Amino acid sequence: MMLILSSIIAFIGIYSLVLTTSNLLYFRSLSKHWEKHTSKELVTIAVPARNEEATIEACLRSLMAQSYAHLEILVLDDNSEDNTAAIVRKLETEDSRLHLITGRALQEGWRGKLWAMEQLFRQSNGTYLFFTDADTVHKQDSIAYGMSLLSQRNAALLSGYPKQQTKSLGIGLLVSAMLFNPTLFVPFALQERLQLPLFSMAIGQYILLKKEALDAIGGFSSLRTEICDDVTLARAFARKGFKQMFAPMTDVVECEMFPTFKGAFSGLERSINGVVKRGLIGFLMILLIVIVLLALAVAPLLTLGLAILSFSNTAYLLPALWLFLGSLTLWASWAWAAKRFAFSTPVAMLGHVTIFLVVLMYLHGAYLRSTGRGFIWKGRVLP
């Protein structure tokens, strides 16, 4: 049994190294040669904002300074209880392209952010829509870079991971859970050609899309009950035949997604559970994935234990070697991807800890859903 388990871990480790190598080479090819997009098509920047007084000004000033000139900037104040709206009104006097929209009360049957995004979509004038979060800060070429990639690759939706700012090692370990996609799950180069909904990815901090494609899928109405709005949107595009793609954004935008460990845990467990479909088949698949992830997380400790036992019983030597191979290749893959996405060296070195935390976040989130407690986000309960 131990030999079988160690062989599986070795296979996953080698697969991870191959997948990560492919993905990082693909990402490099996307970002290496790009030219500023010079079209005059209007891009609507859409920023949903709920209680964002600490971050909204820096975000908007970075968007007002974009090198891509043909913009309108819409900020929807989603019933904020702080000074978010007042800050935006002040900035409106500095830039005629900036407009504050007072959000309507949350409509029954909708998630809060999706309702905000739907309102922004309906009031936009651009040929393209650029959704971004209020806690992001963009470099001057952020939109020009995105428009260039959309044009070059003939895509309808573009997203990608920003550079994540984290105040502590603990927060960094939680946020680096996003590396699960490029190291263990999505073959991004192949996905650009196949456009499978399962492998379609997006992150709400950077979503640039063609408005006509969003209109064709009915806006956000078909997604209104979803918890994980970004990934669900990318999958909806793929299902309807609109090309979506994922690219590195670390050079053009950064974000402090979570200021506290508790906030990071709560936010990420919501996202992890939000992409998991309910039902018996889904439950069995997730159960298998959880078991495998737990094995991967403790593989270094198992390797050490079997190595010690092999001194007295050589039957443990081969499983120890397989475990060592799997642990080493997975660790190297995770560390490589972490450095590519600008995580700190300590975070990059502790990938096995992050994998264990992913399991904890999923299990705790599943408990909240099964007991009906739901997730609390921006002061709202998401069942």
Rank of each mutant, 00 (worst) to 15 (best):
L302K: 06
T303K: 05
L304P: 00
L304F: 11
L304Q: 00
L304R: 02
G305H: 08
G305I: 12
L306W: 15
L306E: 07
A307K: 07
A307H: 03
I308S: 10
L309I: 14
F311W: 13
F311S: 04
S312D: 05
S312L: 12
S312I: 10
N313Y: 11
T314A: 15
T314Y: 08
T314I: 14
T314M: 11
T314H: 11
T314G: 00
A315C: 03
A315I: 07
A315Y: 11
Y316A: 14
Y316N: 10
Y316H: 14
Y316E: 09
L317V: 05
L318Q: 03
W322Q: 14
W322P: 00
W322F: 15
F324E: 02
F324I: 07
F324H: 01
L325D: 07
L325I: 15
G326H: 03
S327M: 03
S327F: 04
S327P: 02
T329W: 09
L330F: 13
L330Y: 13
L330K: 02
W331H: 08
A332W: 10
W334K: 02
A335F: 01
A335G: 02
W336F: 09
W336Y: 06
A337G: 08
A337Y: 05
A337L: 04
A338P: 03
K339L: 15
K339G: 00
K339Q: 09
K339C: 05
K339N: 07
R340M: 03
R340V: 08
F341V: 10
F341T: 13
F341K: 03
A342K: 15
F343K: 06
S344H: 00
P346R: 01
P346C: 10
P346Q: 01
V347D: 08
V347K: 10
A348G: 07
M349Y: 04
M349P: 04
M349H: 10
L350S: 11
G351E: 01
G351I: 04
G351M: 04
T354V: 09
F356T: 00
L357N: 02
L357F: 12
V358Y: 11
V358C: 13
V358I: 15
V359D: 07
L360D: 07
L360G: 01
M361V: 03
L363T: 10
L363H: 09
L363D: 11
G365Y: 07
A366K: 15
A366H: 12
A366V: 02
L368Y: 14
R369W: 11
R369M: 15
T371K: 07
